[in-house]
């Protein structure tokens, strides 16, 4: 029997995955590019090629620029808080104490529950009249009148950031905890013998050793935060006054509420390029670390 070369066998094994990825990820991207150059509104049976007109329209639409700002602000602020808070919690839980396993599992819970549920939980707590947050604040005499957390154009985005921080900090904690466990104990023993303070130890040993994983975490979190949809869609629907309307929500509304597939696709393309360039920028910053992750071995 003639042996099939291993390369050919390998491709056969890869085929199902390649097919699925090509059909459900690659093809839609190409279709998106094509759609973005058409004037296509489903209910009116309009469908014609218009080149880059959608993009031209996009760049003079204030609502687009607003959603860009909202997305950037949301992603920047929430990721910054998550990384700092996550680092603190990870350092805390890296101590060994009785029940630390259960505490680690409990901390993971907010990350695992559906985002829709997260949105509803916080929506309920944020309610002006019957929400527990206002009740506690008033009971502690910190405020006198109920605050409209999600109704105020300036507060809503911050209220959403808090909910996002609550939900996604555990992801940061998990990755950092695993990385902290990998730091050789001897480094700490050497530092202790050298008489380093705990601040010194953190700054000169822990943080440099966590460099790789921090780059990875920030990349993953940035990409995730930039495409945020579920949380804001359910909690605020992009309101009030479009102040929480991110690119994802804007795209969704144009696509499925106004059914302007051409114009909506153009927003999608811009968003894709944006996420891709942020990813590439970070991949470039952490290129050595990522090369090690993908690790092409012989």
């Amino acid at each position: 029997m003639r042996c099939m070369t291993e390369t050919r066998v390998g491709i056969a094994f890869l085929l199902p995955a390649l097919t699925v990825l090509a059909l459900v990820s690659l093809y839609p991207i190409l279709a998106l590019l094509w759609l973005s150059m058409r004037h296509r509104v489903l209910p009116f049976q309009i469908d014609q090629f218009i080149g880059f007109d959608n993009y031209a329209l996009l760049f003079v639409t204030p609502r687009f620029w607003n959603s860009l700002t909202v997305t950037g602000y949301f992603a920047g602020v929430s990721v910054a808080i998550e990384v700092i808070l996550g680092l603190g919690i990870a350092l805390l839980l890296s101590h060994s104490f009785k029940g630390v396993g259960w505490v680690r599992a409990a901390v993971l819970l907010p990350w695992a529950i559906p985002t829709v549920v997260t949105a509803k939980i916080w929506d309920w707590m944020y309610q002006p009249q019957v929400g527990v947050l206002n009740y506690v604040l008033q009971a502690m005499h910190l405020t006198t009148a109920p605050i409209h957390w999600l109704g105020s154009p300036s507060l809503a985005i911050h209220a959403a950031i808090v909910a996002d921080v609550w939900k996604t900090t555990p992801f940061v904690v998990i990755l950092l905890l695993a990385a902290i466990a990998m730091i050789p104990r001897d480094l700490y023993r050497a530092a202790a013998i050298d008489g380093a303070s705990s601040w010194h130890t953190f700054w000169h040993i822990t943080l440099p050793q966590l460099r790789t994983i921090l780059i990875v975490v920030i990349l993953f979190r940035m990409i995730d935060a930039m495409r945020v949809f579920d949380l804001l869609f359910v909690m605020t629907g992009g309101g009030p006054a479009d102040m929480t309307e991110t690119l994802s929500i804007y795209t969704y509304k144009i696509l499925f509420q106004t059914l302007q597939f051409g114009y909506g696709s153009a927003i999608g393309v811009v968003m894709f390029l944006l996420v891709a360039s942020v990813s590439l920028l970070q991949l470039w910053i952490g290129r050595n670390e990522f090369r090690r992750m993908i690790g092409t071995q012989v």
Binding site: L26, P28, I29, L32, L35, R227, T251, M271, A276
Partner: peptide, 20 residues
């Protein structure tokens, strides 16, 4: 590429997928 594919914003593909 696989890692890159996991970074696609779902909203980007959802329109064309809806059509299909």
């Amino acid at each position: 590429i696989v890692l890159g594919a996991s970074m696609f914003p779902a909203i980007v593909t959802v329109g064309p997928l809806f059509v299909i």
